[in-house]
Design a protein around this nucleic acid. Sequence first.
DNA 1: CATGAATGAGCTTTCATTCAT
DNA 2: CATGAATGAAAGCTCATTCAT
Lengths: 219, 219, 219, 219
Amino acid sequence: MRERPALQVPAPRRPDRRGAILAAALREFAANGYSGARIERIAAAAGVNDRLIYYYFGSKEALYLLTVENAYEDLNRAEGKLALGSLPPREALAQVVKFTWRYYLEHPEFITLLNTENLHRGRNIRKSSRVRGLSRPVIAILDSILRRGRRAGEFRRDATTRQVYLAIAALGYFYLSNRHTLSNFLGVDLAAPRQVREWEAFIVDAVQRVAGPGRPGAG
Amino acid sequence: MRERPALQVPAPRRPDRRGAILAAALREFAANGYSGARIERIAAAAGVNDRLIYYYFGSKEALYLLTVENAYEDLNRAEGKLALGSLPPREALAQVVKFTWRYYLEHPEFITLLNTENLHRGRNIRKSSRVRGLSRPVIAILDSILRRGRRAGEFRRDATTRQVYLAIAALGYFYLSNRHTLSNFLGVDLAAPRQVREWEAFIVDAVQRVAGPGRPGAG
Amino acid sequence: MRERPALQVPAPRRPDRRGAILAAALREFAANGYSGARIERIAAAAGVNDRLIYYYFGSKEALYLLTVENAYEDLNRAEGKLALGSLPPREALAQVVKFTWRYYLEHPEFITLLNTENLHRGRNIRKSSRVRGLSRPVIAILDSILRRGRRAGEFRRDATTRQVYLAIAALGYFYLSNRHTLSNFLGVDLAAPRQVREWEAFIVDAVQRVAGPGRPGAG
Amino acid sequence: MRERPALQVPAPRRPDRRGAILAAALREFAANGYSGARIERIAAAAGVNDRLIYYYFGSKEALYLLTVENAYEDLNRAEGKLALGSLPPREALAQVVKFTWRYYLEHPEFITLLNTENLHRGRNIRKSSRVRGLSRPVIAILDSILRRGRRAGEFRRDATTRQVYLAIAALGYFYLSNRHTLSNFLGVDLAAPRQVREWEAFIVDAVQRVAGPGRPGAG
DNA sequence: CATGAATGAGCTTTCATTCAT
DNA sequence: CATGAATGAAAGCTCATTCAT
């Protein structure tokens, strides 16, 4: 009743199309958010046919979810490689700050992806059992550093691990996440290498102050 | 099929449709980002016809730009009312932290709007002469506080006003901006009143430590 | 962020586009069933833009539902014009048969539309309050004829109005609904005028026999 | 993710995949019409891979054609088993009515399949030499019954075999084919056992009246 | 035969936007 | 100003079908 002719171009050497799509999706979702992202653009960037995305992933939403999950998993994996047991607490703390900061710096898509997730009130992440299953090693690592530091009298006792973690993340994330509006507002290009370097030094020090002993202004 | 919301204020001669649209646009853009926002939804929320939006504002983009500009202006106006000249430096600094934090807390749309702007690399803000013209009084205020504090020996000399401002903004903004993914990840509801209260106390103290004198761990 | 240019051709004299779409939809759904029908084909046949269909009717399904409802209503209206009160029962019965038969004959889309509805197990009709509200006058009319006939001893008492109605409908509907496969199978073109005429005569007589007095073969 | 249904018959060497596909196709085409039917659904129901359907049957249309042909052949075979030579004409006629009715009743897919064929104007059946080659024994059988009946003075002479056959088919087919819309319209569930039983009795009697001697109302 | 990969063609639907009245 | 009519452009997705292994 209807006929469908067909042309087929032989694929050379079976490249990793699935991986290419995921990589392109990460960039596209990070650059445009969920609604702004275009399946066709992802396909073009990955060098594949639009329909292949549906073949592999089923829907735009499913692809998005997978992209977010992968991003989380990548961070988790990177955190897992942190080995700071042998460093003195203050130094170890500095390493955690640097690690977090540099991870954000080197994974700008992670930041915009997280922003998109938060725009959607964390809907997808909450649904994802894969994300829920992640251990986020950084928390345990940081906790152990803080304990050691407190025992050594180098860190205060009235700051929780969660608070210190939030401070570390905030100081790094916000600078990068909001760098465009901030650069405009402050009249400096926050993305410039020098600014980036100085900010890293500043927040390493800042976190040490925040975690440090004593009461500010107590004297 | 369409409803017109009751007037809030005892019947002004003609209802402020322009204002209603802008208010609805703020909520819609904040809740859904630029591409996710729907002109039709804005019109419905404002109790007006879609076409009126074009009549008044010309296009979705123009409306968005105006929305962002207004949000910036609102913040600017609020900052302008800060009068901390008479407070001792440490206390004045605490007031700046609280002011910033509470402004974010009470203007959640401001945060998602800024995130959207940053997703678009600040394109619209950069183009806006109105936003460029804003003075952002908080910087001057903070600068004066820091100077006073340094003179009094209460604040360090090697931290710039910009750095302290960024720290203040980061510690408040990030907590709220990312509260959905963070709540999920940390297993606490960061939006709960108690958490919010504790975080305020924590960051007031944190900023004082960051701005404070001496070198951490120097002893 | 995205612009949309526009060209507009001035519409001449405001034709009834809504009506044109409904007429085209009736033909298209009747000719191809629900899944086989194409919105684009309906638009083309009505001489309008595809999107206008969505503007007026919202969705393919809503258009289909409206089409079915209209078809039912048309039949109802036609039945309402039957005025057979003054005819003797046998003659009045013949008129009902002829009316039903000719209605089917002149409204071939009604038949395929009903078949489509039955393919879908009457889903849409059942949902339609508009269809449920129809009186279907033919039943009342037929009932009154049968009563008169029974009183006059011309009709049997052991056949219900519903049964006689079903017989009338069946004998007319099936012939037309299945004429393609039947023509092929019987080796005659059932759509040929002569065949049509003869079948009308046959079923008028047949229904009279079915409604008539006595028991067949009783003698 | 895909399940293979258990074998009905004590494990024949290899399961009859072709037969399973045809059975599933009959159900799918009958339930959804041609355009509404899905190859994937047929494959799933048959417990095979989509591509196997193409391997065996070449295309959706070819599968559909075969399905229709098989349905026709099944009816033909069933008709071939009718042996009514020894019964008195009126009784034999009743048996033909019952046979036809019950065949429809027990093969609901046959009815929707025929409707689909008629929606497509009998295009496929006309093309099928296999269907054209079928003898359709019921016509010959009915013809012989009518002849015997006329000779015995029990049947009228002015009704053709074809007309009587059409009446038989119509009274059975229409009731079942349109039962969904009719049930809705009449306010009775025509599929209820009691209704089904009563309708059988009614049409057996009705056909006897239609084929019977004399002229209705002639007295 | 089984199956993963891939795609042409097209479908319904969305959305911002324009225009005439 | 208000509103019904109308549409360009595209977006996400479906489905039958093919091909290589």
